[in-house]
Design a protein around this nucleic acid. Sequence first.
DNA 1: ATGCCTATTATTAATAGA
Length: 258
Amino acid sequence: MKIATYNVNGINARLPILLRWLDEAKPDVACLQELKAPQEKIPEAAVRAAGYGAAWHGQKGWNGVAILVRGGEPEDVRRDLSGEPDDAQSRYIEATVRGIRVGCLYLPNGNPLPGPKFDYKLRWLDRLATRAAELLDEGGAVVLAGDYNVIPTDLDVYNPARWVNDALFQPEVREAFRRLVDSGWADAVRSLHPTERIYTFYDYFRNAFGRNAGLRIDHLLLSPALAPRLSAVGVDRDVRGWEKSSDHVPTWIEIADA
DNA sequence: ATGCCTATTATTAATAGA
């Protein structure tokens, strides 16, 4: 079973890219972020014609997340992350797919800092940690996949010095991510490739992709019940080179049958 | 220290992304 996460940066602007990638990569589950479309303007018919059932949490203008299931439907969908009942930002969706609980998240960027956006990012990390602990308590097979907007270590950024003042690389953000992982999760990419430079994002600016000036900020965290079934991980780096691509790269794992 | 590029919203300029 192949589970992927992909920040599409506008699902309507990116629809040809998304459909081509689904056709070529054939993920069984695709967690999408930054749909940039309200609930009623997600291109559901095109997604279904490509062979995918879907559940999504849209928002006008920004954010928006979706879970796509090849030849099936997401079950028991929830779209909220507890802790901030009035939160209007669509950044989380969770569903069950063939016995695996899939959380799809788009963590706030947090720039500029200090300021309310950075404070919101820290609160969101707390809320995610709370949900993650609940899921661990349930003991099942879980993957938390998405755009975390966190650079975990120096190995995950082409030039650490350039990012020290950025919200993605702040010590408290990195520590919060580390605490989350250490509470019982496996960072799938690092489980199989502990020392390799693997990037999932390349800025549109400054020919970042051409220079391989990337970041690893899209992550898949696996619960203890799921981690032993991990058989492969990868990034579809070539997708970033397609014309009109997202600035993110699809990132995926292969899970063996239970 | 900031712009660079790209998408959305709403009307040609602002906001957000990372």
